[in-house]
Amino acid sequence: MKKSTGNNSENLKVIKSKNHISDIFFEKTTLFFAFLIICIVFWIIYEMFIDSAPSRDAFGWGFIFSQDWEPVKEQFGALTFIYGTVVSSIIALAIALPVSLGIAIFLSELAPQIIKTTLSFLIEILAAIPSIVFGFWGIFVLAPFMRNTAQPFLESTLGFLPFFTGTKIGFGLLTSGIILAIMIIPIISAISRDVLKTIPQAQREAAYALGATRWEAIKMALLNAKSGILGATVLGLGRAVGETMAVTMVIGNRAQIKISWFEPAYSMASVIANEFAEASGKIHLSSLIEVGLVLFAVTFVINSLARFLIYSTTKKLTVK
């Protein structure tokens, strides 16, 4: 026993309750299922590793830095897909972050109860709409809108930037960035709202008492919640990186790296979605699985970071 506070600590007899056999069996049963989850996750990692072995053997680390993707010549490199995923996700984040923050502030600090519940509900719905529907809507509504209205407008106003020039197809990095933004706004705003809610009301009252305006009080709460909000953002990023269908439908699916955001591109998830079922030959399939492995590694790092940030904020605040 660890306890040495008592004088006769050596003689302490610990009374341990005896559990009924059925209870022990029950706990072990639930434990078994919980353990299954862990097995499944390791199994997924193992499977990806094994199945991508031919590709990893053939291309090594060069796989990540090569732009070639030629199934006919059996030459594979993932750089174009990594580029497409990274850029579309960054665009998404740049759009989604300010909007989500605004929503979070509005929901946690400003809105009257009835609007709060309605808006929360609508955002929940937004989060639950299948991505195929977003993609479909992207093809028939957003892409034409981008081609005919948004892209000409952007070129005439921001055309001095290389991102906003080039052929206006409607399908490309910018369009998929916008679709992704719409899809990750619910998650970022919901978690930011929850984090903001954990900031004690007393802090805001203290700020008001010192003569702060409402915005200044909110700003203070935001500063306190910043790592939690960062965590929410990173979680949204993880979602954007892994999103498949909506991106596949609007990114244009062309394996190229172009500076313009109007240009079609390709993402890691979309190349898997498009080519996997018809992959020709072992090395092609294995390369696609290696793209999946890279995608998995990226989302794993992003999500772990996000969980850590959110956990550290809420923990710190609730302990206080």
Binding site: M1, I15, K16, K18, H20, D23
Partner: peptide
């Protein structure tokens, strides 16, 4: 929580019961 010492319930040491019986 850790309980130490001895408890006697109805003439028997408490550890002779399981948690349901007690």
């Amino acid at each position: 929580a850790v309980v130490t010492g001895e408890i006697n319930i109805l003439g028997k040491d408490i550890t002779e019961y399981n948690s349901i019986d007690i």
